[in-house]
């Protein structure tokens, strides 16, 4: 029973980490209805940057977090402004072209990282001890990441709800044409959104590399994991994404423990396909507006 309770607690904490890694994708999808296939590679890039900052300058991931986010913000803005804005989403093949473009981007990012950091799995030792709550051992690093994820989720939500720019972003999400007609600079809002989504990916990577080792080719898996989560949550929904993250975290931890790590890696994809096929509208039914 204590094992089971430990697994549930670990699952819940891991759920927070998954949420952290999916929030950027969720934001971009919610606003632009576009899936950034390079999302996982952005996470890995952020993580490897934190690795270098730790190795060279001894900076902790908590310090690296804003720096990785800032770098990815710049990259994200450049990608959206320089490349994706040139594809008109209004045209029927716009979604497909964007998908193909970000598919190419994922290889550019992953292989550029490969040139810099090589191909081995790498991690940062950080907050590796655990403290006991009754019979349950809670790893500190995991707890820190999970709390940060929750804080970030609340911050983004507050930003979208209560700031002028956030409201403009939501307006663009609901109708780009309507937003433009109200005098909003839709192009700039899309660039800000994409950059912010990329920054969240980079920041998440800087923290998560302290928990799981990254390899430059891990990006594809992370993209699918994040996408599974937001699809399960109902694309673009925040509450749904959080629920999905917790569910996925528990499933993954259980699968790791009872079935082994190979099977756990397959479980995420099985969940993914099952969600797409049987529950395309997500856990909470109809997609909620952000």
């Amino acid at each position: 029973m204590a094992t089971f309770a430990t697994l549930v607690v670990l699952g819940l904490l891991w759920g927070g980490v998954y949420l952290l890694m999916a929030e950027g994708l969720n934001l971009i999808y919610g606003v632009m209805k576009v899936v950034n296939l390079a999302h996982g590679d952005f996470i890995v890039l952020g993580g490897l940057l934190a690795l270098t900052l730790f190795g060279r300058y001894g900076l902790s991931p908590v310090v690296a977090f804003p720096l990785a986010a800032a770098l990815l913000f710049v990259i994200g803005a450049a990608v959206q402004g320089g490349v994706l804005e040139r594809i008109l989403l209004a045209k029927p093949e716009g979604e497909l072209r964007t998908l193909l473009a970000t598919f190419g981007l994922s290889y550019v990012v992953a292989n550029t990282s490969f040139l810099i950091w090589g191909s081995q799995f790498q991690s940062i030792p950080f907050l590796q001890s655990a403290f006991a709550v009754g019979p349950i051992a809670v790893p500190q690093g995991l707890l820190a990441c999970s709390l940060l994820a929750a804080a970030l989720a609340v911050a983004v939500h507050a930003w979208l709800r209560h700031t002028a720019v956030g409201r403009a972003v939501r307006a663009t999400a609901q109708s780009a044409l309507g937003a433009a007609a109200c005098g909003l600079n839709v192009r700039r809002l899309r660039i800000v959104t994409f950059a912010l989504g990329a920054a969240m990916a980079g920041g998440a990577g800087a923290l998560v590399i302290a928990l799981v080792p990254f390899q430059t080719s891990s990006g594809g898996d992370l993209t699918v994991q994040a996408f599974t989560l937001i699809a399960l949550g109902g694309l673009g929904s925040y509450l749904g994404a959080w629920l999905a993250a917790e569910l996925l975290g528990i499933t993954e931890v259980m699968a790791q423990y009872y079935l082994g790590s190979d099977a756990a890696a397959a479980v995420i994809y099985l969940v993914f396909i099952a969600v797409l096929v049987f529950r395309p509208q997500g856990l909470l039914g109809r997609t909620m507006r952000i």
Partner: peptide, 27 residues
Amino acid sequence: IMLRLNGIFFALGMFGLARILQIAANG
């Protein structure tokens, strides 16, 4: 199964299928 999906869902579902098969081949 897969063709119940379309657009991005089909594209990524197929990606997932390839990964499942790769993991199965590992075993």
